[in-house]
Amino acid sequence: MRRFAYHEPKTLEEASRLLVDLGENAHVLAGGTDLFVEIRERLRDVSDVVNIKNIPGMTDITWDPAVGLTFGALVTARQLETLPGVQRTYPNFAEALRLLASIQVRNRATVVGNLCRASPSADTIPPLIADGAIIHIYTPKGMRRMPLAEFFTGPGRTRLERGDIATGIVIPAPAPDSGRIYLKHGRRKAMELATVGVAVSLDRDGDTCTNARIALGAVGPTVLRASAAEALLKGRKITDELIAQVGAQAMAECTPISNVRASAEYRRSMVGVLTRRAVKTAMEATQ
């Protein structure tokens, strides 16, 4: 590992100020499961590491039927994964957590860190976008909040500015009759970065879909919303033909690249397969 200076601020103000003062090679440390890998693999120049884990107020998990699930920036993936309430209410999110890295990594990794790293293949982003999650951000000018769908600007890039620290997430409570699915495609059953990830969250009325959100991972510079495919579903009775159309539309909406994990063509066809499977299962799922 390269050397860096280590800081342990006790408040958000102090952390924020450090980040501003120390300049662009100072980085927030949460779980470190991205940050340390990037330092070791020399993907990132780091002069200073600002550990935010001793800042109080970011470790709570609360559930409120009106608001939904709220959790702080320091809550780990494993904490959320093992909560029965999360498994029951947000099976898509729970699945994304189960499929993220290993138990050891999930014991350190924070969900907010997964979001802030802004990898197009990050597993928690598609289900959280599909569920309309909101991210809360401390900025030197005060607190901000924004829909997660608007948070990402490119691979590894977000709307966070120097001195900004994400403090937590709110996932709205699901509508009474809804289905939510996250499907991850990789060549192994674990320890895989998604070749493609598809999240589908549907609100239903019998076999009619009243509202749909589809988020596609690893097929664009950020996780994408397939809004035309969503529009196809809205207010429609779900049939096999419609599902096929939705799959084709999602394929048309994604913009994958070829790399060592898969070709663009393959990714695109997996978007079709996974979207079809996800819509079908989400319509059938009872929640």
Binding site: Y6, E8, G31, G32, T33, F36, V37, V49, N51, K53, R78, I103, Q104, V105, N107, R108
Partner: peptide, 19 residues
């Protein structure tokens, strides 16, 4: 490098000693 820290298994390579 798996060790158990406060009851939880973690990768010791992804954690600083100061933590």
């Amino acid at each position: 490098c798996t060790v158990i820290v406060d009851g939880q298994p973690v990768n010791a390579c992804l954690m600083l000693a100061v933590e």
